[in-house]
Simulated scan of single mutants.
Amino acid sequence: MNLVERIETEREAISYAIYGIHVVEKVGPKADLARLLDTNIANKNTEGKDIQTVGGHILLYKLKSNRKLTRAASGRLAGSLLGVVCELLKDDNETWEQKFSHIPEMIFLRHVRNGVFHGNRFNFHNAPINAVWRGNELTEDMDGELVFPELRGYNISHEPLGPAERRHADPKIVEGYMATGDAFALVADIIEIVKREIGSD
């Protein structure tokens, strides 16, 4: 596969995963948990514990959760897509340095990738220079800001909550700089840049 095809493959996979999250939100967790949690090696040497059952209990709880978790999870997946795309571009360091490293959209992507992989917060080692995409510029004063939306106050326990606990357990979304759709728009632009700079053969 060429570079464009590899990027498109990753985009398709993440699109499908995000779609699956939203389907579960609409119809509920009716899927077979054993299939959802299929393993190749995790169940080896587990001293009789069934990873699928243990994980399934937690997964089932999360799948029953609300739209806020769905939105936050979609954003995290979109961020992962940008991270993978950036790594694919940098896989050939010579091509990255000669063809991509000076292009504003690629600089923007690199800083977003760094933020996603550093706790979903922009993490500028040096002030971003010329990190611009569609008129949006990353600046030094954004250091530490959220890249994608984040869920706060989410009760990770699968135990039922009492009335007093419920009053304090309503999660909220803290907005990030980017949203899920922004990631896909950025990837579309990156693909066009790759085609322009090195072709798609």
Rank of each mutant, 00 (worst) to 15 (best):
H168W: 11
V27R: 11
G181A: 15
L77A: 11
R152F: 06
S74V: 04
I129Q: 15
A13R: 12
L161W: 09
I193S: 05
A34N: 14
E97A: 12
H158Y: 13
E8G: 06
T95P: 05
V4D: 01
E8N: 07
P160K: 03
G28V: 04
D170H: 11
A34K: 13
R121H: 14
P171Q: 03
P171K: 00
H22E: 12
A34T: 13
A169Y: 02
K195C: 03
L33D: 08
L81M: 10
M178W: 06
S80A: 14
E140W: 02
D182F: 05
R196N: 12
D170A: 10
G153H: 01
N40T: 11
K90E: 09
T139E: 07
E140L: 02
K195S: 05
T46N: 08
F108I: 09
V84G: 03
I129T: 15
A42W: 09
T180V: 08
V23Q: 12
Y19K: 15
Q98P: 05
T46D: 07
I103Q: 07
R152S: 02
V194T: 05
R166P: 03
A42L: 13
S15W: 12
K64D: 02
L59S: 01
M1V: 10
D182N: 10
D92L: 01
M178S: 03
H125E: 15
E97Q: 13
N126C: 13
E105L: 11
T9C: 07
G79V: 03
R166D: 06
V27Q: 10
A179H: 11
I129W: 11
T46A: 07
I14W: 05
H102S: 15
L82R: 07
H111C: 10
S15I: 14
Y61C: 01
H111D: 12
D38P: 04
N66V: 01
Y177W: 14
G75H: 00
H22C: 12
V194R: 01
I18S: 04
F117E: 13
N123T: 15
E47C: 10
R76T: 08
L33A: 10
H57L: 06
I51G: 00
K68A: 05
E140Q: 07
E12L: 14
A127L: 01
R121F: 10
A42Q: 14
M106D: 05
P160N: 03
D38L: 11
V23L: 13
F122L: 13
S74K: 01
A188P: 04
T95V: 12
S200F: 07
K90H: 09
E10S: 08
D143K: 04
N66W: 01
R67I: 08
P160H: 03
R76E: 08
M142L: 09
T180F: 04
V27L: 10
E150D: 06
E192M: 13
E145N: 03
H102A: 14
H22N: 14
V4L: 02
D91F: 14
K64G: 06
D201Q: 02
A188D: 15
E175H: 11
K49V: 12
N123Q: 15
G75Y: 01
K62G: 00
A73K: 01
M1D: 08
Y177F: 10
T70G: 12
T70D: 05
P128T: 02
N40V: 12
F148N: 00
F184C: 08
Q98I: 10
S65F: 00
G83T: 11
K26D: 12
R152V: 09
P104I: 05
D170W: 06
L59I: 00
E137V: 06
W96E: 03
A72F: 01
I103L: 12
E175D: 11
